[in-house]
């Protein structure tokens, strides 16, 4: 890094209409990607409705989006109960997009929580359609977002792998899951099933 009093002047220019920043001449890859990120951030910053135009502190959260997300989840759950699995998957996907579309400065813990639950639900919907591959990926993502207290996520990926006949992977996965959720009955049962199938 340069000393505190100096900086490197970069060849930047601003588009007077769109207010987008671009680099003039030949720019390095890092600079162009960074400028893209900057311009997207700028656009999202423009929609902020604080008096000073700066992002509000992470808490409290704008309740509008949370309400929309939980509404989408509810309708997804309703579809699921009616055994309309494809439309349940669609609802959950919409909700996931909504949750990931939160402004970047809102609490990341909240995003993790929401997305993990939604992905887990979507995995269940996929499993009901016997789309084991999609279910496995969704459940893995759900667990990645929230490892502790996500026994269902662990179980779902284990079950999907088991159904696809990938017993080795399923066994490793379930073992990992048991490290987080040692008393979960479903996981223990699944472990027993895997061992039985492997023993055959």
């Amino acid at each position: 890094m340069e000393s505190p009093d100096t900086f490197t002047l970069l060849p930047l220019q601003i588009d007077p209409q769109t207010k987008a920043i671009t680099a003039t001449g030949t720019a390095s890859n890092a600079l162009t990607t960074e400028l893209q990120i900057l311009n997207t951030l700028h656009r999202s910053l423009l929609s902020v409705d604080t008096a000073t135009g700066t992002p509000p502190p992470p808490v409290p959260v704008n309740p509008k989006r949370s309400a929309a997300i939980s509404k989408l989840r509810e309708s997804g759950n309703a579809e699921f109960r009616k055994h309309q699995y494809p439309s349940a998957v669609r609802m959950y996907s919409l909700a996931i997009d909504m949750a990931l579309g939160r402004p970047a400065w809102e609490p990341s813990g909240l995003v993790r929580e929401e997305v993990s639950g939604l992905l887990s639900n979507r995995a269940q919907a996929h499993m009901s359609m016997q789309n084991w591959a999609e279910g496995a990926v969704d459940a893995e993502a759900s667990v990645e977002m929230k490892k502790v207290g996500n026994a269902k996520g662990w179980w779902r990926r284990g079950k999907c792998l088991f159904e696809m006949g990938r017993l080795e992977e399923a066994e490793v996965w379930v073992k990992q899951g048991l490290e987080f959720e040692a008393t979960e009955q479903d996981l223990l049962q699944l472990k027993g099933e895997i061992e039985k199938r492997k023993g055959k």
């Binding site: 700028h42 910053l45 423009l46 135009g53």
Partner: peptide
Amino acid sequence: PPHLHRNIYLTLLHQENPKVPDSILKA
């Protein structure tokens, strides 16, 4: 490595013609 983000910010801050709007500087 060189602080690219700092360089961008300071370059924009020192740009005179035309002046960069505040919202971009905040971003």
